[in-house]
Design a protein around this nucleic acid. Structure first.
Lengths: 196, 196
DNA sequence: TATGATACGGAAGGAAGTTCCGGTTACCAA
DNA sequence: TTGGTAACCGGAACTTCCTTCCGTATCATA
């Protein structure tokens, strides 16, 4: 299902030649600094802040990611890849219903952790609608790994697609401030609705 | 439950004196132009575009709404007031369960129509957290008008609050592109989860 | 109609994203 | 080791928006 090892940050330009060592180092520095700032800063960091924090000039950032939203996208993609890898694991190790529940909990946590980037992400989605559809496809694919077995086992209603399900769960988290214990309760409501 | 008639646009400054006729007219023009552009333009309209479209200088806009997000907020508030007025009507005219379903459908449509303003709204919410909490309070209040009767009638589970419910329904719409017929289906899933 | 309060328009300020290019550095061949 | 060159670097300058400010125009009232 998954390809060869994913490089954290692309290190080969379209020429086919490996990047120069300093360029590769700088690219990684920017990526790390950006991820750090996006997840911790209370207000959205400016491109200049990110560059300064990474110890590089602004030009260096723009050579690697041609726009702010491209940078946001790169970070988002990587986080998503880490998340979806979990579905297959749950499928191998648990009963169908339990695997589904575990996966949904992970997804819920992931979506919650992305709340701070919500504004940034919606700009990135506006700029490249493929990002939205493709990452949704990835999530749907991972969801199916646990959803289809549950449906075949007859514990989840059949008329529900993976896309429907993720939509429901994502909604629990987005654009809302809910006490943490409520999340579990809301997920339970959805789970009750799923049962065959 | 509702106060005296709501003026579409405030027409009295804090001095207590009525606004000058030209000022009142301009205020309304800006409001109408902004609502139009926000709901139709594919990219977010700039303040200058709004002003030009209203036939007014930029200064005139800023006298009425001191920032972009204040303008977004005003439009959002008005739309919300129109929506919440519907709950009482459904309560008066229908059985508890049906009233709840009708109200949730309205809310779903409302949230869907706000999708284009999502980025703008989240900026407004960041700027004034009270807006988020207050409009949520309004929605919760309206929801309770139909939810509590349904719970008293024993057709909806008791451990669910109005805030929980709206969270679930809002999630169906936000940050997603779903074919219209899927909305109904997703709402059905939530409704099944609600049943006592 | 005269006068003061109120409101108007748009130039200018400020902040953030993006482009561009002269200077610098890593890599490779000799 | 050393030169030559492609690749890369930094940051000034440009652009676009939001917002502020103030001289001018208009409305309301006596």
């Amino acid at each position: 299902m998954s390809g060869p090892e994913v490089e954290t940050v692309e290190t080969v330009e379209s020429t086919g030649r490996p990047m120069r060592a300093d360029a590769r180092r700088n690219r990684q520095r920017v990526f790390d600094a950006a991820r750090e700032l996006f997840s911790t800063a209370e207000s959205d960091p400016s491109m200049e802040q990110i560059a300064r924090s990474a110890g590089v000039g602004i030009g260096t950032m723009y050579r690697n990611w041609p726009s702010r939203s491209a940078l946001v996208e790169a970070i988002y993609r990587e986080d998503l890849a880490g998340l979806t890898a979990g579905a297959a694991h749950y499928h191998d190790e648990h009963e169908p219903w339990d695997a589904l529940v575990l996966w949904l909990r992970d997804y819920l946590d992931h979506a919650r952790s992305k709340r701070g980037m919500l504004t940034e992400l919606s700009v990135a989605f506006d700029a490249r609608p493929e990002l939205l559809s493709e990452s949704r496809r990835q999530v749907v694919e991972a969801t199916n790994v646990v959803l289809e077995p549950a449906q075949r086992a007859g514990v989840v209603r059949d008329d529900l697609t993976a896309a429907d399900l993720m939509q429901l769960v994502r909604g629990i988290v987005l654009s809302a401030i809910v006490p943490p214990d409520r999340y579990t309760m809301l997920l339970d409501v959805v789970l009750d609705g799923l049962r065959a």
